[in-house]
Simulated scan of single mutants.
Amino acid sequence: MILIVGGCWKKPSAWHAKCDALQKAQKVLEEVLVRNVDTWNALIAGYAKQGHVEEGMGYFQRMQSEDISPDEAAYAFVLKACGTMQDNDMCKRILDDIVNKGLLRKNIMLGTALVDMYDKCGALQKAQKLLEELPVRDVLSWIVPSAGYTQQGQG
């Protein structure tokens, strides 16, 4: 089912999350009989957007407990949350999952999210090393560590 309301469109949970109605999005997710990675991603992204990273991480873990495998977008949202929380152990587990699934080989968004996570955790050298090892890079990939170095007074 797709809704178009007030300029927001997508599946119900995505619509609610994008329109900042996270409790409604959560309720819709609970009522949906068949959940997939897209419905979970919409909710996780909504919580991340609103700065509720712990809740987003909880839904990420719940998605996995329902045997729904995260895709690149889910991992990108979670990497942002890990960086914000500065949870190095969680970051390591997520990185291991990403590497084991071979997701870094072609995905610019995921590689950039990982560089950003290291940057937010203050691991600028790891961010720089990862950037240099990424098989595919774009302008944003280079901007993220540059901003981190500038914020650390190493412009």
Rank of each mutant, 00 (worst) to 15 (best):
D96Y: 00
L29G: 03
M90Q: 05
N36S: 04
N36G: 06
L124H: 12
C19I: 02
Q61P: 02
V32I: 13
A123R: 15
A81Q: 04
K80I: 11
L33G: 08
A48Q: 15
I4D: 02
C121D: 05
N100W: 02
R93Y: 06
G122T: 08
N41W: 05
C8A: 11
T150W: 02
K120V: 04
D89C: 11
T150H: 09
A127G: 11
G58H: 06
N36T: 10
W9H: 10
I2E: 01
K101D: 07
K18P: 01
L140P: 05
W40T: 06
K92A: 03
R137Q: 03
N41E: 05
N41K: 03
A81E: 04
K80N: 10
M117K: 05
V144E: 11
L22Q: 07
W9V: 03
L114E: 01
R137V: 07
M90P: 03
T150A: 14
L22K: 14
I143M: 03
C8L: 08
C121R: 11
G6Y: 05
N107W: 00
E133M: 12
D138M: 10
H52K: 15
T39I: 08
A123G: 08
V99P: 04
S13A: 11
G56H: 14
H16E: 02
R137L: 01
E72D: 07
Q50S: 12
L140H: 12
I2S: 00
C121V: 09
G46W: 11
Q86I: 05
A76F: 00
M63H: 08
A45S: 13
Q86G: 08
R62E: 10
D67V: 14
A48E: 15
G51H: 06
D20I: 14
V5N: 11
M109K: 15
M1T: 11
G122E: 04
F77W: 11
M1S: 07
R62I: 13
A73P: 05
M63A: 04
L3F: 15
A113N: 04
K49N: 01
L110C: 01
K11S: 03
L33N: 03
L79F: 04
C91A: 09
K120C: 03
D38I: 15
A76I: 09
K18T: 06
A42S: 15
K27D: 02
F77R: 12
L33H: 06
V144T: 12
E72K: 07
K101T: 07
V28W: 03
L29Q: 04
L114S: 13
N107Y: 00
I98E: 01
I108W: 01
L43A: 02
D119M: 08
A42E: 02
L103N: 07
K24F: 00
G111E: 02
R105V: 05
K10W: 06
K18Q: 09
L114V: 07
I68C: 08
D67E: 14
V28K: 07
D119K: 14
D89T: 10
M63S: 10
P135V: 12
Y75I: 08
